[in-house]
Computed example of a mutant assay.
Amino acid sequence: MAVRVSATSIVDAVANDLRARILQGGLSTKISLTETETATTYDVARPTAKAAIEKLVAEGLLVRGAHKTARVAELGPDSVRDIYLARAYLESEVLRRLASVRAVPAGAVRANLDIAAVSGGSAMDVVEPDMRFHTCLIDAVGSERISKIYRSLVGEVRLCMTRVQSLNLLDTGLIQAEHQRILELLADGDGQAAALLLDEHLGRARERLVEAIGGTAGPEARLPSSLIPL
Score class of each variant (00 low, 15 high):
residue 120 G to P: 09
residue 35 E to Y: 02
residue 211 E to V: 03
residue 5 V to M: 03
residue 159 L to R: 05
residue 158 R to N: 12
residue 104 V to G: 05
residue 172 T to K: 08
residue 172 T to G: 10
residue 33 L to R: 00
residue 107 G to V: 10
residue 6 S to Q: 11
residue 19 R to G: 03
residue 57 V to N: 01
residue 222 R to D: 15
residue 55 K to F: 06
residue 56 L to H: 01
residue 97 R to V: 03
residue 175 I to T: 15
residue 155 G to R: 07
residue 59 E to F: 01
residue 225 S to T: 12
residue 140 A to T: 09
residue 31 I to S: 12
residue 101 V to T: 15
residue 55 K to Q: 12
residue 146 I to Q: 07
residue 194 A to T: 03
residue 192 Q to H: 15
residue 89 Y to A: 12
residue 179 H to L: 06
residue 149 I to C: 08
residue 177 A to E: 14
residue 89 Y to T: 05
residue 38 T to P: 03
residue 116 A to Q: 13
residue 159 L to Q: 11
residue 222 R to E: 14
residue 169 L to F: 10
residue 182 I to D: 01
residue 213 I to W: 07
residue 108 A to P: 05
residue 96 R to D: 02
residue 93 E to W: 06
residue 88 A to I: 06
residue 77 P to A: 09
residue 194 A to W: 08
residue 222 R to V: 12
residue 224 P to T: 11
residue 18 L to I: 12
residue 42 Y to A: 05
residue 146 I to Y: 08
residue 52 A to R: 01
residue 203 G to F: 09
residue 127 V to P: 03
residue 207 E to G: 06
residue 28 S to V: 05
residue 164 V to K: 06
residue 88 A to S: 13
residue 113 L to D: 13
residue 188 D to S: 15
residue 226 S to R: 15
residue 132 R to W: 04
residue 59 E to V: 00
residue 111 A to F: 07
residue 219 P to H: 07
residue 164 V to M: 03
residue 182 I to C: 08
residue 84 Y to D: 02
residue 142 G to Y: 03
residue 37 E to H: 09
residue 4 R to I: 08
residue 209 L to P: 00
residue 19 R to E: 13
residue 183 L to R: 04
residue 178 E to G: 05
residue 132 R to Q: 13
residue 83 I to C: 08
residue 154 V to E: 14
residue 217 A to R: 06
residue 59 E to N: 00
residue 128 E to V: 09
residue 4 R to S: 14
residue 72 V to M: 01
residue 78 D to Y: 00
residue 3 V to Q: 03
residue 146 I to T: 14
residue 115 I to T: 06
residue 166 S to T: 11
residue 4 R to P: 02
residue 230 L to G: 04
residue 226 S to W: 02
residue 11 V to T: 15
residue 170 L to D: 02
residue 185 L to A: 07
residue 205 A to N: 05
residue 149 I to R: 10
residue 175 I to C: 05
residue 145 R to Y: 14
residue 212 A to M: 10
residue 83 I to E: 01
residue 159 L to C: 00
residue 134 H to F: 10
residue 168 N to R: 13
residue 141 V to G: 01
residue 56 L to S: 04
residue 192 Q to Y: 08
residue 216 T to Q: 12
residue 41 T to M: 13
residue 178 E to Y: 00
residue 50 K to G: 08
residue 152 S to E: 12
